[in-house]
C-alpha cells in the first residue's frame, strides 16, 4: 500500500491560513490503513484544528467528509457537493489523491495534509516499512523476494557494501541490511548461485527517470 504520514499541525495551520471555510477530505483506502487520512483521522484533525484556531482567535468553519478512494473519479464524485461549497480542501489522501482532486476541481485550492512517504507493508501494528520503489522492472525473482534497489541505501545490485555489520545497515543501525536478508533467504531457498552471477546495470527507463509513467490497458478501454 501507499504509506503516508499526516503533516504536523503547525504546517497544516499555515497551509489553511488563507481560508475561512475548508473541507477536510479523507480517503478510505491506503492512508486509512496507515492511520494518516481515514475517517477517524479526519475527525481528530478537524477537532484539533478547530481548537487551535479558536485559541489563535481565528474564525474557521471546518467540514468533514471521507470518500473511499481519492484517486478515482467514481469515488471523488461523492465528495463533489462538499468540495464545491468550501473555499479550500485539505486532502488527507496520498499525493495521487491530491492531484486527482486538483484535476477535477480546478477552481478550488486542493491542499495536502499528508506527506506521502513510500510503498510499503505493515510490519507490525503501527510500524510500516518501505519495500518497493515502483521501478517498473521487478527483479525480486533473483533476489529471494527482497528488493535491493529499495532496501539497500546504495541501491547495490551485486552484493553488500563494506559497511554491513551484524546484519545491520551502516546508514541506520536499526535497519536490516537488505543484502544480509537476501543472502539468508537465498541460502534457505538453495539459490546462492544467483549471487555469483553478475547483475548488469539497471535500466531506469521503466522508472521515474523515463519521465512520468502511464499504463494503458487497451483490453480494458471501452
Amino acid at each position: 500500500m501507499i504509506v503516508g504520514e499526516q503533516k504536523p499541525i503547525s504546517e497544516i495551520k499555515e497551509i489553511i491560513a488563507p481560508y475561512k471555510k475548508i473541507l477536510i477530505l479523507g480517503c478510505g483506502t491506503c492512508v486509512k490503513t496507515c492511520f494518516a487520512g481515514g475517517e477517524d483521522e479526519v475527525a481528530v484533525l478537524a477537532s484539533a484544528l478547530r481548537l487551535a484556531c479558536k485559541k489563535d482567535g481565528k474564525e474557521i468553519e471546518i467540514e468533514e467528509f471521507t470518500v473511499e478512494r481519492q484517486c478515482e473519479d467514481e469515488f471523488i464524485r461523492e465528495g463533489a457537493p462538499a468540495i464545491s461549497r468550501n473555499e479550500g480542501v485539505l486532502s488527507l489522501a496520498c499525493g495521487a489523491g491530491v492531484q486527482a482532486l486538483a484535476r477535477r476541481f480546478v477552481k478550488i485550492p486542493i491542499l495536502p495534509g499528508v506527506n506521502t512517504t513510500f510503498i510499503g507493508v505493515l510490519e507490525k501494528q503501527g510500524v510500516f516499512t518501505e519495500e518497493c520503489s515502483g521501478c517498473g522492472d521487478c527483479m525480486l525473482a533473483i533476489f529471494g523476494g527482497i528488493c535491493p534497489f529499495t532496501r539497500c541505501a546504495k541501491k547495490l545490485l551485486n552484493g553488500p557494501c563494506g559497511g554491513s555489520q551484524n546484519g545491520k545497515c551502516e546508514v541506520n543501525p536499526e535497519t536490516d541490511c537488505a543484502w544480509q536478508l537476501i543472502i539468508e533467504r537465498l541460502k534457505i531457498l538453495g539459490q546462492m548461485d544467483n549471487l555469483r552471477a553478475y547483475v548488469p546495470p539497471k535500466n531506469w527507463q521503466t522508472g521515474l527517470s523515463g519521465g512520468p509513467r502511464k499504463l494503458v490497458r487497451e483490453d480494458h478501454i471501452i
Binding site: P160, G163, S164, Q165, W179
Partner: peptide, 9 residues
C-alpha cells in the same frame, strides 16, 4: 564486513 561467507564470492 558481514556476511563473512559472502565476502569471497
Amino acid at each position: 564486513a558481514d556476511p563473512f561467507e559472502y565476502r569471497v564470492i
